[in-house]
Computed example of a mutant assay.
Amino acid sequence: MKKEDIRIVFMGTPEFAVESLKALVENGYHVVAVVTQPDKPVGRHQETLQPSPVKQYALAHHLPVLQPVKMKDADFIEELRSYKADLQVVVAFRMLPEIVWGMPRLGTFNVHAALLPHYRGAAPINWAVINGETETGVTTFFLDKDIDTGRIILQKPFAIPDTADVEYVYDGLMHLGAKIAMETIDLIASKLPEDNLEKVDFTAVLNDISAPQACEDVELPTAPKIFKETCEINWNQSAKKIYDFVRGLSPYPGTWSTLHPISPNGEKPLVMKVYKTAKSDHPATGTPGTLAIEKNRLYVNTSDGCIELLDIQLSGKKRMDVRSFLNGFKGIENYTFRRE
């Protein structure tokens, strides 16, 4: 079967998904419709509706767009079925009910930004960097009833340099995800005849090109959703753990910590975001969270030494390098980082 003959419904929302949709459109795949999240209210009073990046791309290329509030809505199901998709491709979307993922005869596959079964969940890129992994990757797998547990089709590895932050890995996996999406469709097409499709056992074909996930007896790392509380720095950890934690959440959503005055005299605690740090040989000078300033450089004590802060932002202020911060903020030596 030719790739151009496979009717595809694409599902996705953020920028990460746009790259895959763009690759399919620009390389001649037959995308018949796009499903994305409803427009999001933005602005001070939430008076403006912002379309998702996927919707913006789809409309610019004259693709029909569906935006269901509920994936089981009867009108949405009827409209989705009207496109008679052979295959559904999901990239950075939401959990689908069986009535949706089971609809196409060639199934529904997802592009996941990790090497499954490792890092199942909503934030695989962040957690791979936070945990100090040296390698991650992308996986295509057929959806089933559980989250990220379906049969694996293809995988591609991606190296994580020790200096990389999550933005670097995100960008790399975004492009690698587009590539593996096309290769997966090509693989499916190559296993189907050009005619007499009514005689094809589609389940057997799809099982032939995929395999169950190998789940070791050891506990696998997961990738739960990240909240504001997740991003608070624990200075009682090692410098290496803190270094990986910061780069795993930089530039977005960004780690943070609260500076408390050592001897309060009317000063209020200050919330600081930390976007970049550096490993340091600077000897420990105090308990975890206490500061050390030396020649326009700012160090924080951890459980096993010091870590240097390089790029920060005080609440209500602009993001800046530490040298600029120290030049403009006097009395920082009278503060310490402390968790509530």
Rank of each mutant, 00 (worst) to 15 (best):
K3V: 15
E4H: 12
I8Q: 09
F10I: 03
G12A: 02
F16W: 06
A17G: 14
V18S: 01
V18G: 01
L21H: 00
A23E: 10
N27F: 02
H30V: 02
V32F: 01
V32G: 06
V35W: 04
Q37K: 06
P38T: 07
V42T: 14
G43M: 05
E47M: 02
K55M: 00
K55G: 00
Y57I: 08
A58G: 05
H62D: 13
P64Y: 12
P64M: 14
V65M: 03
P68M: 06
V69M: 11
A74H: 13
F76M: 09
A85C: 05
V89G: 01
V90I: 13
F93N: 01
F93C: 00
P97Y: 01
E98L: 05
W101M: 01
G107R: 04
A113H: 13
A113N: 07
A113E: 08
A114P: 03
L116T: 00
H118W: 07
G121N: 13
G121Q: 13
N131I: 02
F142C: 12
K145M: 02
I147D: 09
I153V: 14
Q155K: 15
F158Y: 15
A164P: 02
A164S: 15
A164F: 13
A164Q: 06
G172H: 01
H175W: 03
H175K: 15
A181I: 05
A181E: 02
I185V: 15
I188D: 05
K191Q: 15
L192N: 14
P193R: 13
E194V: 07
D195F: 09
N196H: 15
L197Y: 11
K199W: 04
D201E: 11
F202A: 14
T203V: 11
T203I: 10
A204L: 05
A204S: 14
A214S: 12
C215Y: 15
D217V: 06
P221Q: 10
P224W: 09
I226L: 14
I226H: 11
F227E: 04
C231R: 13
C231N: 13
E232A: 11
W235M: 05
Q237L: 10
A239W: 00
A239S: 15
K241M: 09
V246S: 10
G248I: 01
L249H: 15
Y252R: 02
W256H: 13
S257F: 07
T258S: 11
I262N: 11
P264H: 03
N265C: 06
E267V: 03
V274N: 05
Y275F: 15
Y275V: 13
T277V: 15
A278D: 14
T287I: 08
T290I: 00
L291A: 10
L291P: 08
E294V: 02
K295A: 04
K295C: 03
Y299N: 03
T302N: 07
G305T: 10
L310I: 13
D311I: 07
S315Y: 06
K318P: 03
D321H: 09
D321S: 06
D321L: 09
F325D: 04
K330M: 11
I332R: 08
E333I: 08
Y335P: 07
T336Y: 06
